[in-house]
Design a protein around this nucleic acid. Sequence first.
RNA 1: GACCUGGUAGCUCAGUGGUAGAGCAUCUGACUUUUAAUCAGAGGGUCGCGGGUUCGAUCCCCGCCCGGGUCACCA
Length: 513
Amino acid sequence: MTSLEEQIAQRQANLRELEALGVAAYPNRFDRRHTVTELVEAHGGQTGEQLEADRPETVASGRVLGIRSFGKANFLVLSDGREQIQAYIRQDSLPELDFKIFKLLDFGDWVGVAGRLFRTRTNELTIWASRLHFLAKCHLPLPEKWHGLTDIEIRYRQRYLDLAVNPESRRVFEVRSKVVSAIREFMTARGFLEVETPMMQPIPGGALARPFVTHHNALDMELFLRVAPELYLKRLVVGGMERVFEINRNFRNEGISTQHNPEFTMMEFYQAYVDYQQLMTMTEEMIGTVARQVLGTDRVTFNGREISLAAPFSRISLREGAREAASRRLGRDVAADALRSREAAAALATELGVAVDPKAGAGRIATDLFERLCEDRLVQPTFVYDFPTEVSPLSKQCTDDPDTVERFELYIGGFEVANAFSELNDPAEQRRRFEAQLEERAGGDLEAHHMDEDYVRALEYGLPPTGGEGVGIDRLVMVLTGSPSIRDVILFPLLRPASARADRAASGEGHTS
RNA sequence: GACCUGGUAGCUCAGUGGUAGAGCAUCUGACUUUUAAUCAGAGGGUCGCGGGUUCGAUCCCCGCCCGGGUCACCA
């Protein structure tokens, strides 16, 4: 027998012995009075004398993460995933059967403990157990207690193990949950209505991205998982819902990286009567507020750099950022209009060693240059504003410059966290933009928009002046938790399936042939 | 997709062209306030998978699988 098989057999033998003693192997409920975290929070600051005076009683429960045994005196470490507390299991302090249960416990089993709180000689907060209840068996050996589970692949594939033994991981997902709550609170307090729009769309739109394709059987209809809720949310503003937001998943059939998961969470909102300038103010207020509310501070450390999330954030126009970076790189002053004509922009890109797509116009080239030269330098929160119209088919042009739209992206930690613009509400112009997108599709760009006649019709009914924005929740949580990879903030990130053989080995099933 | 890098006991990791190592975990024994408890003993491995070179491969070579990182694409 291998060590693993041996350990599983031992655990199963312990379970059978429990059953032989008449102990329910899988009881249906347990009436707990306090979580381990509640106990630590309520009594962690109390001295042994205070505890002796109060003699607080509790019934707690959790997973056994440690057993220290001294014959008749024993300690169990009980975890609720966030905090740990130890229980003192003394042979003459609890019923004989309960002590027998203790002797049959394995690391990872779930138990309930009743008793009073005290501090040991070493001043450790402890439950002096008067009862021990068996709640559920752990049939497989747990990762080691000291190093925990560090294998990144197992942490992602078997997140339950990661959560069971790594409180740091648990903390990340608690922060994530609180961030979502804080944003929801921030938005509803400002009169925004939370809505849900289709995840399955007949025409995918709202972002330049390749969609996932699926099929509805009864309607025999091709459907796309949404790449953005944008076009639906704006239809709602047409309908008079002046402030709407949605927190939900988007799906993009593209590469995977430390900053990209095929499904990711976005908070997207639309507000009638405001433009992108007002959205910048609101965004810096929102991010600072959320950070302070969730973390108690608006200063965070990300990739070894301290980042301040306090307003105001820096602002730089896209073309000016690209121009400055190009000037610095080339050691000479690049003229402001070098990014305005296709010819000049292409020459500049070539000089800088940035590949030029033959179909790209001046706007695309300027955007490429910016992303190439500036993006990873934007560690402190920075609004990059005024994008070329060419790369922004849904944004409204600046009144004095039709080649530029009222749009910004917010960068933090070197990547894009939010994208916002004054919404294009002229149906004729929108139709022209879609047609330009159709040409790009015809030219082979699979990320370009489809024509969405109903969306144009909605605009024909009249969209008031509106600002809209999408905030990448995963990326914001990365910044707020100091997580270098998006997979660290997604409970079950997409991975290639492990081989069938590896799956069987991991689950402890073997061949019996 | 390209390049770099990793896969050895349940976990964390050493290591070598000549029968595979440690700590924790497991098993046996001792121990009535321990803190990664300690002490004594024992068991546990197709060294990711498949080929090749070799008298002999976990090690060298080739291919494949699954991670991680950088780049490309994207938010």
